[in-house]
């Protein structure tokens, strides 16, 4: 097991290193110049040059790469070109929006998907099952940003129950902030819950047909009892895997929803920073997002290996 963990850790480090090179190079070849963007159309060339010097853009690429990566290893990401504040601070501010949003969406997803999937599996081929399968099929097909637009039309513009966008910040107390996150979380959760409910259902059905569950039933347990006592726990393994994937998707993939609701999250930060050529922010946030996806995958792999020792040998 230790050997397996070590090998996977080495792989992890290599992947992260490769990612840092790719991200850095992509930023290097990006056309456009942060100094030009800062100074606008009336700037004189010597002013732009002075600002470039001040930002340290004139130093060799290799030096900047080394500085950036060693900085990151120490938890220091540099200073944003446009905001003139430390990138770590910016990210910390934005994580306060993105993380609660992702968690809220994941919680909603789970709360909807697990019971719904279980009901569908327990009453296989009943009207309830067919209804659930039909609804989840539609849920998967709905673009989340479109669903978000409808939610805004209904709950913000027509009913005025919830804000249509923007984020009041946590300083104003948890309630206004949570209110601002409700609609985005629902919009994110619907397609994810549909996917997870289907996974839950088929995973349960698969374990129900396994021998030991059949044995349990033969011993006189009812279908519901067999499901609760034996199948549920085993069925949750693939469900947890999918949830892990969904979480990293929710953390990194909320750019569109953050745009619809104008939430100051990580996704919007990347978007804005690219437009302003604040490459130092882009590099660091992209690396963080990529690292979080890779880490979640790593944890999922480990969890798998704990559950199923055969897997340790495969990689």
């Amino acid at each position: 097991m230790l050997d397996f963990v070590l090998r996977r850790l080495a792989g992890l480090a290599m992947t992260l290193a490769a990612a840092s090179v790719v991200v850095f190079l992509a930023m290097e070849v990006l056309p456009g110049d942060p100094a030009e963007v800062m100074l606008g159309t009336n700037a004189r060339p010597d002013t732009v040059a002075a600002l470039r010097q001040q930002m340290g853009l004139n130093r060799p690429a290799f030096d900047r790469y080394v500085e950036w990566t060693t900085g990151m290893l120490h938890g220091e990401f540099g200073t944003s070109y446009t905001y003139s504040t430390s990138v770590r601070e910016l990210v910390a501010e934005r994580v306060q929006v993105s993380l609660p949003l992702a968690l809220l969406a994941l919680a909603l997803t789970t709360l909807i998907a697990i019971p719904v999937g279980a009901i569908a599996a327990a009453r296989r081929n009943s009207a309830a099952d067919l209804g659930i399968m039909g609804a989840t099929q539609i849920g998967i097909s709905v673009p989340n940003f479109w669903f978000a637009m409808l939610l805004v039309l209904l709950f913000s513009i027509t009913l005025r129950w919830l804000p249509a966008g923007g984020f009041p910040g946590w300083a104003a107390g948890p309630w206004p902030a949570l209110r601002a996150l409700v609609l985005p979380a629902v919009a994110l959760a619907l397609p994810q819950a549909s996917i997870l409910a289907r996974v839950m259902r088929s995973s349960l059905l698969e374990t129900l047909s396994d021998d030991y569950v059949r044995t349990a039933r033969a011993k006189g347990l009812s279908a519901g009892q067999a499901l609760r006592r034996h199948a549920l726990r085993n069925a949750l393994i693939p469900v947890l895997t999918i949830m892990g994937l969904q979480f990293s998707f929710l953390l990194a993939g909320t750019i569109i929803i953050e745009n619809v609701f104008y939430l100051p999250g990580l996704g919007r930060l990347v978007f804005q920073a690219i437009n302003q050529r604040d490459v130092i922010v882009v590099k660091s946030v992209v690396m963080l997002l990529v690292a979080s996806v890779i880490l979640v995958n790593f944890v999922v792999d480990l969890a798998y290996a704990v559950v199923d020792p055969r897997l340790r040998k495969r990689r």
Binding site: T15, A19, L30, P31, F249, I255, I256, F271, V293
Partner: peptide
């Protein structure tokens, strides 16, 4: 490749 969110790839491609 899987670790890079598709949207980020799209944004980078647009800029390039």
């Amino acid at each position: 490749i899987f670790a890079f969110p598709a949207l980020l790839i799209a944004i980078l491609l647009r800029e390039l």
